[in-house]
């Protein structure tokens, strides 16, 4: 079964728009990797480079995340709904993890803290209602997930 690889990170995800868009999203652009689109399964990762890490600073929330750059693929699951995605690729740097330290969400006794991922609307809406804003996620490397299939 997909998604049985080692867990890279467990925490919270929100969503962001990118690519051509409208209204407050119209200035979003293609993200740090240049090719982000709201309709694709893409994400922003807080440790996409040293310069990226220096801004997002997940360590200030006590979170340690490995460094992965543009196009790295993840398997992302929502532990509250059991829904998952593969493959979600890195297309941007973010979220601003240290701006929201101590943020926490639970479903039952299963709780997660700290923002570790930003998903595009297409990806987030596959896992949960966009109106939820923030959800729990479990992140694995896509290759690990494939090997475990």
């Amino acid at each position: 079964m997909a998604g049985n690889g080692p867990v890279v990170a467990r925490g919270l995800s929100t969503w962001f728009c990118c690519g051509p868009s409208y209204g407050p999203c119209s200035t979003a652009g293609g993200g740090a990797c240049g090719d982000c689109r709201s309709s694709r399964w893409q994400c922003a990762w807080p440790n996409a480079s040293q310069a990226c890490f220096d801004i997002t600073r997940p360590d200030r929330c006590g979170v340690s995340l490995p460094r992965y750059g543009c196009d790295h693929g993840f398997h992302v699951a929502n532990p509250c709904t059991g829904k998952s995605l593969e493959t979600v690729t890195i297309a941007d740097c973010g979220p601003d993890t240290d701006r929201f330290c101590r943020e926490r969400r639970c479903c039952g006794d299963d709780c997660s803290s700290h923002r570790i991922l930003d998903l595009t609307p297409a990806a987030f809406s596959r896992l949960a209602d966009l109106a939820a804003g923030v959800i729990q996620v479990v992140v694995r490397n896509a290759s690990d997930a494939r090997e475990a299939t």
């Binding site: 740090a32 990797c33 090719d35 922003a44 996409a48 480079s49 997002t56 941007d92 740097c93």
Partner: peptide, 17 residues
Amino acid sequence: RRRRFLSNAVLGSATVI
């Protein structure tokens, strides 16, 4: 400032397919 810096921060490793 932060968002622009975030975008610029990872450009060096960008690969577009």
